[in-house]
Amino acid sequence: MAAVTSIMRAQQIMLARIEAVLKPFGVTFARYELLTLLSFTRSGALPMKNASVRLQVHPTSVTNAVDRLEAAGYVRRLAHPTDRRTTLVEITATGQTIVRDATARLNDEVFARPGLSQDDIHSLIRVLSGFRHDAGDFADPGSR
């Protein structure tokens, strides 16, 4: 129980730090993750179902995030060119700017100084990667 509680509390602390940095950009971490995912695609667009799979969240969560991001002008929905049943979500130029600026701030204020030594970071990644691998979290067995 101590290990699980420690992991859960560490997650809460990190998420609070991230959310504080993202607040001025008007996005939550979940919405930031979706924008970042879209920014890494070749075309800037993905089927909403694919975004759900890649982010490992329920499709309803993606729909909710897209609703909010679309209202802010950061993404838009598009009809799929060959599959009428599929809706694409595409990042806008404004969304690209948000991702770039938010990432710079996160790198400076959170990711560069997570509050752990480099040795602790490497140990933590090794331990958690093994745990995640054993839980089937990685598609490629060699990605551990």
Rank of each mutant, 00 (worst) to 15 (best):
R76N: 10
A20L: 04
V110P: 09
H80G: 03
A30L: 07
D101G: 01
G115S: 00
M8F: 11
A135D: 15
E90V: 02
M8K: 15
A93F: 09
I13H: 09
F131M: 10
P141C: 02
R85I: 02
A93P: 05
A65S: 13
S129F: 09
M48E: 11
T36D: 14
I18M: 12
V21R: 03
V66Q: 07
L46I: 00
M48G: 04
D120Y: 05
T36F: 15
Q11I: 11
P47K: 05
K23F: 06
D101W: 02
R31V: 01
T41C: 03
I125A: 13
A135E: 13
H133K: 13
S43L: 08
N50Y: 12
A30G: 11
A2L: 12
P141V: 01
D137E: 11
E109R: 11
R84D: 08
V75D: 01
E90T: 04
R126F: 09
G95Y: 00
A3W: 12
T41H: 02
T36W: 15
T86W: 01
R100S: 10
E90W: 07
T28Y: 05
S43R: 12
D67S: 10
V99F: 02
P81R: 04
D140P: 06
M8A: 15
R42W: 02
Y32C: 01
T63G: 11
T97E: 14
P59E: 02
S43V: 06
F111R: 00
A72E: 11
A102E: 00
I7S: 13
R126E: 09
I121Q: 10
L46R: 04
D134L: 14
D137L: 13
L88T: 00
A79N: 14
A10E: 12
L37H: 06
A135V: 08
D67A: 13
I98L: 09
G115V: 00
I18P: 06
R77W: 04
L78T: 03
K23W: 03
S129D: 11
D67W: 09
V127W: 12
S143P: 02
V99Y: 05
L22P: 01
E33S: 14
Y32W: 03
T86G: 02
A104T: 09
P141Q: 03
K49S: 14
D83V: 06
H122G: 08
R144M: 13
G73K: 01
T97M: 11
E109N: 08
A112V: 00
A30M: 09
T87P: 04
G44R: 01
T86Y: 02
L22W: 01
G142V: 06
P24S: 03
L34F: 05
V110L: 03
L124V: 10
V53G: 05
F131R: 13
R76A: 07
T94C: 07
A51K: 05
V27Q: 06
T86F: 04
S61P: 08
H122P: 05
E90M: 11
L35S: 01
A93R: 14
G95L: 00
T36I: 03
A45Y: 07
I125D: 10
R85L: 06
L78P: 03
A20G: 07
R132K: 14
L116Q: 05
R68T: 11
K23H: 10
T97A: 12
P81H: 05
D83T: 05
F111W: 07
L128P: 05
D83E: 12
A30E: 13
V53W: 08
A79V: 13
F29W: 14
A30C: 02
S123N: 14
S43A: 09
Q56G: 10
T36H: 15
P47N: 04
